[in-house]
Computed example of a mutant assay.
Amino acid sequence: MSQEPKETKTPSDAAPRSRAVMAVAYLATMFAAGLGLVYATDGARSPGGRGTQLAEARGEPVASAQPEADLAQLLASSSEQISTLDNRTRSLTAELSSAQARIMALEQSLEALKVDQVAMLEVERDRLAGELRALADQQAAPAAGTAPDPETQPDASLEGALAALGAEATPDGARVTLAESQLRFRPGKAELDSQAPAALAGIAKLLKDQPGIEVVLRGYTDSSGDAEMNLALSEQRARAVRDVFVDFGIDAERIQAQGLGEAHPVADNATPEGQSRNRRVEVLLVQP
């Protein structure tokens, strides 16, 4: 029986086989890694993809896409708010420009109004000045013929006022008699009734219009009672009338008050009617 010769393995044959096995293992590892990368990328792009499913199958944590969605929503909201603020800013800027334009127009109108008012006042001033000059020229111009002497001409306004007061001409001046019924003194008293000033208003106006006239007030009583008391009472009543004229604004220095008592009666003291007429105050208007 013949024996087959045994195959003898040399070290040079074992080395190539070992390198081949290592190369195959390396390629298998790289393929598996590449396949896993593909699945992972696909899972990152779409939730529930193959990569996500593979990660879930291996029990690995799966990244959520919610933070990216929240960030996108926040960016969209911020962009909308910025746009709103821009629009509001443009609106406020337009309103400010309009307000500034109105203010400028009002200032111009006010300035024009001031100019117009000044011009009107100047025109009015010139007109009044012209009237005053014309009036002065008329007064300075000599009248035709002989001008009357003002000192010798009666004052028509004074005569009319005296006539309206019922004044009587006397050697001492014009006399106005104030009866007891006008002054309303109470018996034995020097206080005037509250309605008495109304009876003196006309004389007070004449004295204001004619500042050169002096006044003499003469008080009288009837003959009843003590003569000395009547004399004092008549003077008190004359002073009471003077005080009313002073209240009307007449200078007290222009007024002299006298009391003559029962002297110079104008009626019979034997009757009540005569006594009433004798109780009086006479206003003597004296021209200088």
Rank of each mutant, 00 (worst) to 15 (best):
A267H: 06
A252I: 04
E228K: 10
A161F: 02
E151A: 14
Q73M: 09
E122F: 09
A164V: 01
E235L: 12
T93S: 13
A179F: 00
L192F: 03
I103F: 13
S46L: 10
A65I: 00
L217Y: 02
S97V: 10
A57V: 00
S91M: 10
L162Y: 03
N278I: 05
R45H: 10
I203W: 04
V266N: 13
P67S: 09
A174F: 05
G145W: 04
A143H: 11
A204M: 08
A76Q: 15
D137Q: 14
P142S: 07
S181E: 06
A263W: 01
Q182M: 05
E60M: 08
F248M: 06
R218W: 01
P154D: 09
P211E: 10
V286H: 10
V241W: 02
E107V: 00
Q258C: 12
P288W: 03
G259I: 12
Q258K: 11
P150N: 09
E131H: 10
L206G: 09
L192H: 03
P47V: 00
F185Q: 02
R17G: 08
P272M: 14
A23V: 00
P148D: 09
E68K: 14
T170K: 02
V283K: 08
N269H: 11
L74A: 14
A232T: 15
D137L: 11
Q287Y: 07
S194V: 13
E151G: 14
G36I: 00
T10H: 11
T152Y: 03
A101P: 04
P154W: 01
L158I: 02
V281Q: 05
E228V: 11
Q258W: 04
V123E: 15
A119D: 12
D222F: 02
Q81G: 12
G43W: 01
A55H: 06
P47N: 14
R186Y: 03
L113Y: 12
N87G: 13
Y220M: 05
V244S: 13
A240H: 08
R277E: 13
G249R: 08
G259F: 02
A252E: 12
G202L: 06
R254F: 06
K9H: 12
G36V: 00
F31G: 15
R254T: 00
L260I: 14
P11E: 13
E95C: 05
Q195M: 09
E56H: 04
R133T: 15
L233W: 03
A14Y: 10
I82N: 11
S97G: 14
Q258N: 14
A179V: 06
P154F: 07
L260C: 08
Q53L: 10
L217P: 02
A69K: 15
E253S: 14
E214V: 00
V215G: 07
G202M: 08
